[in-house]
Simulated assay, not measured.
Amino acid sequence: MGIITLEKSDHLFWLGRYTERVHTTLKMYLKSSDRMIDSDPNYYAEYCKKIGITNIYGSRENFVKTYPFDESDPNSIISNLNRAYDNAIVMRDYIGTETMAYIQLAIDDIKTAERGDTPLADLMLAIDHILAFWGCVNDLFDDEQIRNIIKLGKGVERIDLYLSLNRCVSDIQKEYRRMKQFLAKSLIRYDESVLYTMDNMLSQYEFDYMNVRNLLRNLFVVSQ
């Protein structure tokens, strides 16, 4: 494919980030739905706080109706999936139509869930199609740099979410080590001083999650 420009790297990086964001938040939403139905109807407010989005929903019923499906809500699951698709379609010649098709299928699943009688089951299908997308990334790409940039975005998003969700230190350290492997192979430009600071902080048994998250967001010369 030749040299990957900064603009193309940006699209690949955010393709990885948005697909990971949708995958993780979909799984969280399904678990939260069970909790809201069974024991805690106001748990949606805690969900919003955990993932760092503004609680604009006002009630469990509105959250359930809006958060997965409302394309006018920039924090909704469908909005993030649409952003993934927008990046994929720009890079269609690099990632292939089969890979991109799985994102479209996930979008279709969510739209079916909005209209259908079994929304949770349809949303689970969307998770399956995102996993199929990652399977294509792993198995079908000839260009290692493209694969590594997408996986770098995935790893960065996962660390960002883990920090927001206050996951245990060992989980964050594990994902950070994996992310650095893809960083080394991706040829993405980054701030070495920020990475050095993160290395020192994440080598500790305790660290300030918010400071690490801010560092992570200032590590790369790619943004959207």
Rank of each mutant, 00 (worst) to 15 (best):
residue 1 M to A: 15
residue 1 M to H: 14
residue 2 G to F: 06
residue 3 I to P: 04
residue 4 I to R: 00
residue 4 I to F: 00
residue 5 T to Y: 12
residue 8 K to R: 10
residue 9 S to V: 00
residue 12 L to V: 02
residue 12 L to N: 01
residue 14 W to A: 03
residue 16 G to Y: 07
residue 16 G to P: 10
residue 17 R to A: 06
residue 18 Y to G: 04
residue 20 E to F: 12
residue 23 H to V: 01
residue 25 T to Q: 07
residue 30 L to K: 12
residue 31 K to V: 13
residue 32 S to L: 01
residue 32 S to M: 02
residue 34 D to E: 15
residue 34 D to H: 11
residue 48 C to H: 02
residue 51 I to Q: 00
residue 53 I to K: 01
residue 54 T to E: 14
residue 55 N to H: 02
residue 57 Y to P: 14
residue 68 P to Y: 08
residue 72 S to I: 04
residue 79 S to A: 15
residue 81 L to Y: 02
residue 82 N to H: 03
residue 87 N to Y: 04
residue 90 V to R: 01
residue 91 M to H: 03
residue 94 Y to I: 01
residue 95 I to F: 09
residue 105 L to A: 13
residue 107 I to E: 09
residue 109 D to R: 10
residue 114 E to A: 10
residue 114 E to T: 00
residue 117 D to L: 15
residue 117 D to K: 15
residue 118 T to G: 05
residue 118 T to I: 14
residue 119 P to I: 10
residue 119 P to K: 09
residue 120 L to A: 11
residue 131 L to Y: 13
residue 139 D to C: 07
residue 140 L to T: 15
residue 141 F to Y: 12
residue 142 D to S: 13
residue 144 E to A: 15
residue 145 Q to G: 11
residue 149 I to P: 09
residue 152 L to D: 08
residue 153 G to H: 04
residue 154 K to F: 03
residue 155 G to H: 04
residue 155 G to F: 03
residue 159 I to K: 07
residue 160 D to H: 11
residue 160 D to E: 12
residue 161 L to N: 04
residue 163 L to E: 01
residue 163 L to F: 05
residue 170 S to L: 13
residue 170 S to A: 14
residue 172 I to Q: 12
residue 173 Q to F: 00
residue 175 E to P: 02
residue 177 R to V: 09
residue 180 K to S: 06
residue 182 F to L: 03
residue 185 K to A: 13
residue 190 Y to W: 06
residue 195 L to W: 06
residue 195 L to T: 05
residue 197 T to R: 10
residue 203 S to W: 07
residue 203 S to G: 15
residue 203 S to R: 14
residue 205 Y to W: 06
residue 214 N to F: 10
residue 217 R to K: 15
residue 218 N to S: 13
residue 218 N to V: 02
residue 220 F to C: 11
residue 223 S to D: 10
residue 224 Q to W: 06
